[in-house]
Design a protein around this nucleic acid. Structure first.
Lengths: 365, 365
DNA sequence: CTGAAAGCGCTAACAG
DNA sequence: CTGTTAGCGCTTTCAG
């Protein structure tokens, strides 16, 4: 097969220099080298299309310019933008990404082992905020493998961490709805096992308090976005059956929000006139719904970029940190004070106007 | 940092055997080895948690158990399911995936170079059917790097290829709509530069012909799903302005379909009563729209799995092939003969009933 | 059935 | 400023 691989030795011979000289030009240690030699070596390299084997290099340097990415729930649309952003950022920094999907602690431990044998320089974990066991990560720092976690509890101080402020996000959404005149604001909780669910619930309470609204048990329902959509529909229906029914709903994510909208519409209600709906995530389709969905945008891409930067900076000598990003409320028609067909046709894809100044993480677009 | 790496030599010493013996147990060449020795070596390996370095192994064997995945348009939701499926399939087969995003031929050439220096055993290209230049791939076979392309023209006979039948998919959708009683069926074309767009347009014509319907220029519009949603809205509006207006639209993809639905609804039309809408892709949100979207499901996941299998089989000695997969028409409410609120609450997430037997690629669910 | 030894392609001392 | 050399950790003949 690949019998004709060009090696550094051949380059050396053809350039009539030693391998170390070639190695030097390869690695930019070219400062005090005769310009003529440099030229000649470079010429041979390019005519032979020589590319040093990063395997061989990795064996001796112990570095591979490869980063492992361990993704929980790879099927989730939101995480894909993270993978994309990460890949771009990584390649800009001269790294490649080995992407692995881990479905649980056991799986993750296995994946980490493989990644270690492959000699990755660092690992980024992007999680679903599931409070997962971290013990299998404890020996990573000792093994000299840098790691940063996204949307997950920090396994230790040697780990980098990037997260976002779920609590402030939901709190801000409540305030937004309150500003619009809503007084009966319901909240759909996500999967029970996730930290994000707790944070968001806390944000809901905080938002109510800030707005001076009472917390009502009845207005909080469970709608696990990892479960069957029929269950979301049921939860939405129960909310709508209440008397008095809520005039606004913050859904557990954009998918659930889509079903809430549909459920309301099927009952003849108009969104947002009879019911305002706010999602969480800002997935691609949010702006395409009818009406376009107001949603709490999670800064997944930014998180990915920050995580990568943290890793690269740490390789360059800095130490790990924990950063928390702001979410951003993207206001579209599903929470506007007037029904969408009476308004300018606002809200298509990445547009989205912005709410009042009261809550954090809002930004002009 | 990683000073304390366990090596095969240490295992050999502690087991009081030679390194080659350890290597043998590592590689399963254990047939004619004293059971007692085997036991001892394995014991030492597991107590020391020894993992052979795949870098070192790769250097000598020339194989890395790593596959490159080159994705065009990594941001597209549809492709993510491919990445997920591929990762799972790869890991099951003992491989890892280096995922790269290539934005064009130049970028792709660069990515391929990097992948080669990293010693990948094969490369899978998953494309957007853009008729892209393939010349930079021509020396892959000679270099002993296996490659298979998904949704892209085959660069040569040494390349594997997996694709799907866009033409039959759209043709089947036309027939489905015809069966439902539609006689004025419009079609929204995707990006001009893609092969898939041409195939789909051909499928549209074929479907009309099969149904005995005339081809009408006016009913075909351009709605590039990579462009601004406002342009889709305009295209949809133009269709609806026609007299007589179409009673059904096949949209260029699910996102466009969502906007078509919205445009119709904003004009007070009911989907599907006044207008039936069919998408292409079957993205996650298709089932969440109101009404749930009938769509031509592209077998992206299956394609990914087939591609991986082809690669692995070829490594094992088989030769590359070209396979074409069927699409599947997933019938939901947006094309049902009656309005959704008069029907059983069908159509939530992966459900979707199935049309008549006339067209290819339909399957019972 | 096991051990010694020769590299895989490269980098990094260390001499010249 | 350039050349020689010793490995990185593993596999794989080839002798014992």
């Amino acid at each position: 097969m690949s019998s004709d691989r060009v090696t550094i030795r051949q380059i050396a011979e053809m350039s009539e220099v030693s391998v170390s000289t070639v190695s030097n030009v390869l690695n930019g240690r070219t400062l005090r080298m005769s310009a003529e030699t440099l030229e000649r070596v470079r010429g041979v390299i390019s005519t032979l299309r020589y590319r040093p084997s990063s395997i061989a290099r990795g064996l001796v340097t112990g570095r591979t310019a490869t980063i492992g990415l361990v993704v929980a729930e790879i099927e989730t649309a939101l995480f894909f933008s993270a993978v994309g952003a990460l890949e771009t950022a990584a390649r800009d920094a001269g790294y490649n990404l080995i992407v692995c999907h881990a479905r649980g602690s056991r799986d993750e431990a296995e994946v980490v082992t493989v990644l270690r044998t492959k000699g990755v320089d660092g690992i980024i974990f992007i999680a679903n905020s599931e409070a997962v066991d971290n013990t299998h990560l404890s020996d990573l720092p000792a093994a000299g493998i840098l790691a940063v976690v996204i949307n997950r509890r920090r396994p230790g101080p040697e780990f980098g961490r990037v997260s976002w402020d779920d609590r402030a996000g939901v709190s801000g959404a409540v305030e937004h709805l309150h500003d619009l005149g809503h007084r009966r604001i319901a909240f759909l909780r996500g999967p029970r096992s996730r930290d994000s669910t707790r944070e968001r619930a806390a944000g809901y309470r905080r938002g109510l308090k800030k707005a001076g609204l009472p917390y009502q048990e009845d207005y909080v329902r469970h709608a696990d976005y990892t479960a069957d959509p029929l269950t979301w529909e049921r939860a939405a229906g129960e909310l709508l059956d209440l008397d008095p029914a809520p005039t606004a709903v913050i859904a557990s994510d954009d998918s659930v929000a889509a079903v809430v909208i549909r459920t309301a519409q099927r009952r003849g209600l108009s969104v947002p006139r009879d019911l305002a709906v706010v999602g969480i995530d800002d997935q691609m389709f949010a702006a395409l719904l009818n009406p376009p969905l107001t949603t709490i945008r999670l800064p997944v891409k930014e998180a990915a970029e920050r995580a990568l930067k943290m890793l690269v900076d740490t390789i360059a000598g800095q130490s790990m940190r924990a950063v928390r990003l702001d979410t951003e409320l993207v206001v579209r028609d599903s929470s506007s004070p007037e029904p969408p067909h009476h308004r300018q046709s606002a809200g298509c894809l990445p547009s989205g106007k912005v709410a009042g100044p009261s809550s954090p993480g809002r930004k002009e677009t």
